[in-house]
Design a protein around this nucleic acid. Structure first.
Length: 454
RNA sequence: GAGAUUGUAGCUCAGUUGGUUAGAGCGCCGGAUUGUGAUUCCGGAGGUCACGGGUUCAAGCCCCGCCUUUCUCCCCA
């Protein structure tokens, strides 16, 4: 016999955790559906040809690969082994676990293009896997909750993402958050204006770290990567511009006046603010954050990130617009925009802020005791009537000591125990005990149902 | 991929410079109480000290390897 253990970076979710997780999933799902997104599920495994090359070299390394079935080494030669794992891998593995939900989604859209109502709005809630080294808030198996729209450039999609973010988080009781927004075109404009066109990725990677490592270290990193002092000097406004979006838009227009793409980006951002206002969102918690870049290179327009304030936690949600996502599957020119909720982090935030309601874990409302065969037979009939009345009920499966039965109910946090013994059967007056208050009363079944339904 | 860190009962953790039989709290099981949980009292079970080597008369403790926990870097949301 071997000691059981979990695979590194994976977790079990017990009943108590599942109740909370389902509450988060349900909230997110409801909002997605209210906004017209349709559900989609894709297989756990994809062909490596679909996954490889979509996430960069690092990403390819982080893919879990599945060994071919059967005699995978049958056709291998001695030289195959000697050439190293990079050349060996494709010869023994052709499938991998999905790394995110966006690429499988793109694959699905391309394969079903003829049948989809465009623009296509889908949501997808499934686990993804990454062969990363686990650390805080980072696992090898975790859930993503994505909602994406493909097939339209309309900024209404961006605005609706902002609205959904507000609705989900407020629906979860999380009031203190900030939806940070930026636009890749503005970042391109900045690169153009400071004379670093073509080095946007380097610029973005560095700027993205601003709130983490500070201005000086960002400048140092840029210098190290070949940015001149003059270029860095021209970048200074990014560190100084205020947070108020109305004046910020004006200041930006002045700064990026010579960059057409930059001005386009500003216009897009303003439009999103305008659409959200037209919708009438109460008290929008949006912030234009020029330092928001995110690592993903495929974002081309809006960029989103959500920060829960008052807790030590990375972003709990992120997304953006990506043009041409389906291009690598032979379907160019399709623009998409999407958002992804990080359930695991939201869970931690809600836990830390004490925002889960207490009776989340309650499932069974009443447990029937089991004295002997006669009482059990009587109890089963009562049990049916309780369940027909919509009450979550169970009967203790064995006729053991009452003490043991009560302990079971107590450990399961079942609020009521219905005691059915010979006396109760004779009189029809059942004993209902409230385990929280310790009170016990004798009453008929109709009254029991009335009490439990409250 | 690099660095640090952790692992002892079901859980949380003690365990002295290497020294006889590895402990505590909680939990679990049984009883006090054959119709009443959470509180009380009594008793009991439970350990390959992560795993594999090595040093030593002697290893939970020292050395090497390996897995694992947590964290940082890289990277990624």
């Amino acid at each position: 016999m071997t000691k059981p253990a979990l695979v590194r970076g994976t977790r079990d979710f017990g009943p108590a955790q599942m109740a909370k997780r389902n509450y988060i999933f349900d909230t997110i799902r409801q909002v997605f559906q209210r906004y017209g997104f349709a559900p989609l599920e894709t297989p756990t495994m994809e062909n490596l040809s679909v996954l490889m090359g979509k996430y960069g070299d690092e990403g390819d390394q982080l893919l879990f690969k599945v060994l071919n079935s059967g005699n995978f080494s049958e056709k291998l030669t001695e030289t195959d082994w000697q050439e190293g794992y990079k050349k060996l891998t494709p010869k023994i593995s052709e499938k991998g676990l999905r790394y995110d939900l966006t690429v499988p989604f793109a694959r699905y859209v391309v394969m079903n293009r003829g049948e989809l109502a465009m623009p296509f709005k889908r949501y997808q809630i499934q686990p993804v896997w990454r062969a990363d080294r686990p650390q805080k808030g980072r696992y090898r198996e975790f859930y993503q909750c994505d909602a994406d729209v493909v097939g339209t450039d309309s900024l209404i999609c961006e605005a609706e993402i902002v609205l959904m973010l507000h609705e989900v988080l407020r629906g979860l009781g999380l009031e203190n958050f900030t939806v940070k927004i930026n636009n890749r075109k503005v970042l391109s404009g900045i690169a153009e204006v400071i004379g670093a066109l073509g080095q946007e990725t380097t610029l973005c990677v560095a700027i993205d770290k601003l709130d983490k490592i500070g201005q000086e270290k960002v400048e140092a990193e840029l210098r190290e990567r070949g940015f001149s002092d003059e270029t860095i000097l021209k970048l200074q406004p990014i560190f100084k511009l205020g947070a108020d979006h109305t004046t910020l838009f004006n200041d930006l227009r002045t700064w990026l006046a010579t960059s057409e793409i930059g001005l386009n980006g500003i216009t897009e951002l303003e439009k999103v603010w305008q659409l959200v206002a037209q919708f009438g969102l109460q008290n929008p918690q949006m912030e234009l954050d020029l330092t928001l870049a995110r690592g993903l290179s495929y974002y081309t327009g809006a960029i989103f990130e959500v920060k829960a304030n008052g807790v030590q936690m990375g972003s709990i949600s992120g997304g953006g617009r990506y043009d041409n996502l389906t291009g690598t599957f032979g379907m160019p020119g399709l623009s998409g925009v999407g958002i992804s909720f990080g359930v695991d982090r939201i869970y931690d935030v809600l836990e830390e802020l004490g925002l889960f309601s207490e009776n989340q874990a309650v499932s069974t409302q009443v447990m029937l005791t089991n004295f002997d065969e006669v009482a059990q037979s009587y109890g089963l009939n009562v049990l049916r009537q309780l369940r027909e009345a919509g009450i979550n009920a169970e009967i203790y499966p064995e006729a053991t000591k009452l003490k043991k039965q009560f302990e079971y109910a107590d450990r399961k946090h079942i609020p009521f125990v219905l005691i059915i013994g010979s006396e109760e059967i004779r009189t029809g007056q059942l004993s209902l005990k409230n385990l929280k208050t310790g009170e016990q009363q004798k009453t008929d079944l109709e009254q029991v149902k009335a009490i439990l339904i409250q």
